[in-house]
């Protein structure tokens, strides 16, 4: 096969970002005539393989091995490196999930092959796909040049492809094996857990006022809270606001926090990093206030204001209270 997509298990289902990677493989595969295989591994390998076999791809590979039942970076790094060596695809696709961040650099180092991470798009050049990623706080896009040969490891940013476009079909399923020694696993994981929820369920909020680092300091948070109160909105925030202890963690929107889809998302001093955007891009009306006209969040905004939040918020609150 030419493209191998490595699946991630989400409680017995294919992780959303792996589905997006399959969609990407199908699009790139049909454009450049490349065949596709999918690798399912871990404790739910068979369930995942069954789901994957219904997509329009050539092969589905299942890998069962006691050392990869549960995820560890050592186990997955070694196992995926072996499968890639044995199958020798030109490309290996992943979703740019937290798990992929954790172990794929190890695969890259083992194989001495490039890991093009967090890719947002591709274009055709010389009969081959060329991949691009965002750099410098998402203000620029870099075209990536991998060293010659294969395999090339590539992870796609969330929503680089829409899994709504995934093509159904039927695939051959076959099992593959790897040779792993228990001494290679030096990590013992415990069960995942959720920290106590904070009471605010932002996912059902109609109106959200969200503060970013641009609010400046903890003492300015009440300005945003008063504005929120004036229109009956919930308060949300970006990660640095939580990291700095200005708001409790359950207010955080983004890949590590909550996903929201309100009628109004008013972003105050938020730059628009992808990890924030994935949590709020489904909002119906996005209003952005930022003093930097190049802030990436303006690209998602329905309404934008280039200005100082500290000047605008108090007056806006006053006007809305009137």
């Amino acid at each position: 096969m030419d493209i191998l997509v490595v699946l991630e298990d989400k409680n017995g289902n294919i992780h959303r970002m792996s589905q997006e990677a399959i969609t990407g493989a199908q699009q790139i595969g049909s454009e450049f005539s490349l065949s596709i295989g999918i690798l399912a591994m871990g404790v739910n390998a068979n369930a995942l393989a069954e789901q994957a076999a219904q997509f329009d791809v050539e092969d589905v590979l299942t890998l069962e091995n006691e050392h990869v039942s549960n995820y560890t970076a050592d186990g997955y790094g070694a196992a995926v490196a072996q499968v890639v060596t044995n199958e020798n695809p030109t490309y290996v696709f992943f979703g740019h999930s937290y798990q992929v961040r954790d172990y794929v650099p190890r695969v890259s180092a083992k194989l001495k092959r490039p890991f093009l991470n967090d890719v947002v798009s591709y274009s055709a050049e010389g009969g081959k796909p060329v991949f691009s990623k965002q750099v410098l706080n998402a203000k620029l896009v870099a075209e990536l040049q991998p060293s010659n040969g294969g395999p090339i490891l590539i992870s796609f940013q969330s929503a680089a492809f829409s899994s709504d476009n995934i093509q159904n079909g039927s695939a051959n399923v076959r099992s593959v094996s790897v040779d792993l020694d228990s001494s290679a696993i030096k990590t013992i994981p415990e069960d995942p857990f959720q920290e106590e929820a904070g009471g605010v369920d932002l996912s059902s909020a109609e109106l959200i006022v969200s503060v970013g680092r641009g609010i400046g300091k903890e003492e300015n948070i009440p300005l945003a809270q008063e504005l929120a109160k004036a229109i009956g909105a919930e308060i949300a925030s970006s990660r640095p606001v939580v990291d700095s202890g200005w708001l409790p963690s359950h207010h955080q929107v983004g890949s590590s926090g909550q996903t929201v889809a309100p009628k109004l998302y008013l972003a105050l001093g938020i730059s628009g990093a992808i990890q924030h955007v994935v949590g709020m891009k489904g909002s119906k009306n996005i209003v952005v206030i930022n003093k930097d006209p190049d802030a990436p969040l303006f690209e998602l905004a329905d309404y934008g204001i280039v200005g100082d939040v500290l000047e605008i918020i108090p007056k806006l609150t006053e006007a809305l209270q009137a």
Binding site: P114, F115, L116, V135, K139, V141, A142, Q145, S147
Partner: peptide
């Protein structure tokens, strides 16, 4: 193993 082959400004969506 990899290099940048040109940088460009992000375009609006």
């Amino acid at each position: 193993l990899q290099a940048f082959n040109g940088l460009s400004v992000q375009r609006a969506e």
